[in-house]
Amino acid sequence: MPQLSQLALVIQSQWLWLLLVLAAIYFVVGRGIVSKVESTVDDRDARIAADLAEAQRLQDQAEADEEAWRNRVNAMREQAQGVTASAKADAQASLEARLAVVDTEIAARTDAAVAELDAARGAALAELESVAVEATQQIVERLTGASVAQAEARAAVTGALGHA
């Protein structure tokens, strides 16, 4: 077993080189590179966590924005419906008012026209009567030679007209 038989000869150099190599690994790699690697991993984990938190925040914000937008749209739609309804009601009201005005005007003009017509008919009848009275007086005078008083003729005419 060379490990035993050579021990006395090699132990010093074994120790020296082993300690040199272990010290090099310990200080250069164990304390140097490993610390760097650990901080790199920690940085990356922290960055990933921060990015995830930021993404979550943005998503929450987007959802809140969408909610606010939806509320605004709903409010505006309600407002628009209100405006439409009130406009409709206004139009209805003004239409009725104008119809009422026009109705009364038409009624008034109709009444005036009827009255005028009546007056014209009265005047025409009066004219007709006076013409008939005069004609009656002259007809009686020609036929009988007697002159009839205007009042008497008028009564006769009125009676005849009333029969007619």
């Binding site: 006395a8 150099s13 020296l16 080189w17």
Partner: peptide
């Protein structure tokens, strides 16, 4: 040789 500086 029994020396720490022996390279093996």
């Amino acid at each position: 040789v029994a020396s720490p500086f022996q390279f093996t």
